[in-house]
Design a protein around this nucleic acid. Structure first.
Length: 500
RNA sequence: GCGCCUGUAGCUCAGCGGACAGAGCGGCGGCCUUCUAAGCCGCGGGUCGGAGGUUCGAAUCCUCCCAGGCGCACCA
């Protein structure tokens, strides 16, 4: 896989400049198709005025066949205009594998996501975990890594027993136990003749699939707990205050962590964490990614400490934190609590607005940004979800392609403004996808997709495709646009419809 | 008290070292005999929480302060 056209252009310019050139797309069209600040950045080390350096580079750049014009502007920017032939040729590179990377070092990566207790249906909080984590997994896979998705069922702990007891109490017509679970779904479960935990295990698998997340590996707490006894002797631990402690504070954690409950000698959760870390890394993953809500960010230190204590490079453990989803009711914002029943379930949101709008909505803001879902406004607000705007562009193109019979391709001698803008936008895709993967920031994809749809709708409004003088070229342009939109939607698990 | 995250247009959010800060929604006004009007165009709207600092250049980096969210269990 060779570098994308803009990357190759940047590389040629880097040779001319003798320094790495980063091309950006200026917002002001008067500043060219591409611009670079190399002269500004390298002026200090050359001890020469940036404008002088930029002027020299401009002269050399203008001699490149792909460059139509090069100008120095402002304090020392170099602005470039590219030829229609270069744009048309670059367009030809857009296809099924467009933007797919081959990393310098292909890694085997595990992404553990959701892993909600089977103590009820998935909440919108878990849905954010899934939408975010799965999109990161898709991005990494697109970037060329080998990715496996795992879901860990905490199906043997205290919370789950409390849940089971709550349902059973309900069946006997009693109040739930102290700290137990409440809510309509408990009543519904009580009415069914099933083991509540077994039932939820099945329900969650179904919901995850419906949310378009393909889990490769389902693990259960019991499996990990069997490994605990074998791991504990390998830890740097000591006895104090009636229990065994892992000396995690020596390995970057805030404090030491107890491994065994002194009351009854049973393993505490951290013991399972350690066993699980080893389990993951021993399975040959170069990297184990955990996707956790902000309420679990205290986990980062202890998981890395666990790895370090076992002799692994803690860099192999990566914890992705996303901010929480809150529900807003009557102007009041509150944290989701399954136990209290203050909760919006994923299936409710899907029923209201569908999988596409739900996934788009949950992944389209930065993971560092909290999300409020207003129970009353959710449906109304998401009717205006930009997902439809993007899907519409895809469907519109499908319509054009249904009407067209001619060949695709060719290079017109002149390009319309809307065509140039659209092509340049499409050429951004490999960079956008690579950066999104690198930064674990899938929200860049929907934002970019909106811009593509934007440029397409503008083009569509101004120019006809079928029956135009440059029909073959425009068919290729429109087909490439559709392909890039489809790639974007796929990266975030949203459907790309042929008709709307 | 300590740690992580956040504070950008009326609302929801992008932008995270470059050229006058952007989009969607909401408001107002235009555009369908032509490939889907779920569309396009125009208008209005911002001391980028505050104060210092680094830099040729800061919404973007550093420090402090203010405000909000989340953590700091022998629960998960």
């Amino acid at each position: 896989m060779r570098a994308s056209a803009p990357a190759r252009l940047a590389a040629r310019l880097s040779d001319l400049a003798g320094a790495p050139v980063v091309l950006e797309r200026p917002s002001d069209p008067a500043h060219g198709d591409y611009a670079t600040n190399v002269a500004l950045r390298t002026a200090p080390q050359h001890r020469r005025p940036p404008k002088e350096l930029a002027a020299e580079l401009a002269e050399r750049a203008a001699a490149l066949e792909e460059v139509e014009r090069a100008e120095v502007a402002g304090p020392g920017f170099l602005n470039l205009w590219v030829t229609p032939a270069w744009l048309a040729e670059a367009l030809g590179e857009i296809g099924p594998d467009y933007g797919a990377g081959t990393p310098e070092r292909r890694q085997k990566i595990q992404v553990e996501l959701i892993s909600a207790n089977p103590a009820g249906p998935l909440t919108v909080g878990s849905a954010r975990n899934g939408a975010y984590g799965d999109s990161v997994a898709r991005l990494l896979s697109h970037a060329g890594h080998e990715v496996e998705r795992e879901y860990y069922f905490n199906d043997a702990g205290r919370q789950v027993e409390l849940f089971r007891a709550s349902v059973e109490a309900r069946r006997r017509g009693e109040e739930p136990p102290e700290g137990g679970y409440q809510g309509e779904y408990i009543n519904e479960l009580a009415a069914r003749d099933v083991d509540p935990v077994q039932y939820m295990l099945g329900e969650i698998r179904r919901e995850v699939a419906e949310f378009r997340i393909a889990i490769d590996s389902w693990r259960h707490q019991g499996e990990i707990e069997q490994e605990v006894a074998g791991v504990l002797p390998k830890l740097d631990s000591y006895e104090a205050a009636g229990t065994t402690w892992a000396r995690t504070s020596e390995y970057g954690d805030d404090k030491d962590r107890p491994l065994i409950r002194s009351e009854d000698g049973s393993y505490l959760y951290f013991a399972a964490d350690v066993a699980y870390v080893r389990d993951k890394l021993e399975r040959g993953f170069d990297r184990a990614i955990y996707v956790l809500g902000a309420d679990h960010h205290g986990y980062v230190g202890r998981l890395k400490a666990a790895a370090a204590m076992l002799g692994y490079d803690p860099e192999r453990i990566e914890v992705l934190i996303y901010q929480l989803v809150h529900i807003v009711e009557g102007g009041q914002t509150k944290k989701i609590s399954k136990r209290r029943g203050d909760v919006v379930f994923l299936h409710e949101l899907i029923d209201k607005i569908g999988v596409d709008a739900t996934r788009w909505y949950l992944v389209s803001r930065g993971h560092d940004q909290p999300i409020d879902i207003d129970v009353d406004l959710a449906a109304e607000r998401t009717q205006k979800n930009p997902v439809y705007y993007v899907q519409y562009a895809h469907a519109r193109i499908a319509g054009i392609l249904r009407n067209a019979e001619g060949e695709h391709g060719g290079t017109p001698s002149e390009l319309e403004k809307e065509e140039r803008d659209l092509i340049k936008r499409l050429l951004e895709f490999p960079g956008v996808a690579a950066e999104a993967a690198e930064r674990r920031a899938p929200h860049a994809i929907p934002i970019y997709a909106i811009r593509v749809a934007d440029d397409f709708h503008r083009f569509y409004h101004e120019h006809r495709v079928v029956g135009s003088e440059t029909e073959a070229f425009r068919l290729a342009l429109v087909r490439a646009t559709q392909s890039v939109i489809a790639h974007c939607l796929d990266l975030i698990g949203v459907a790309a419809p042929e008709r709307m």
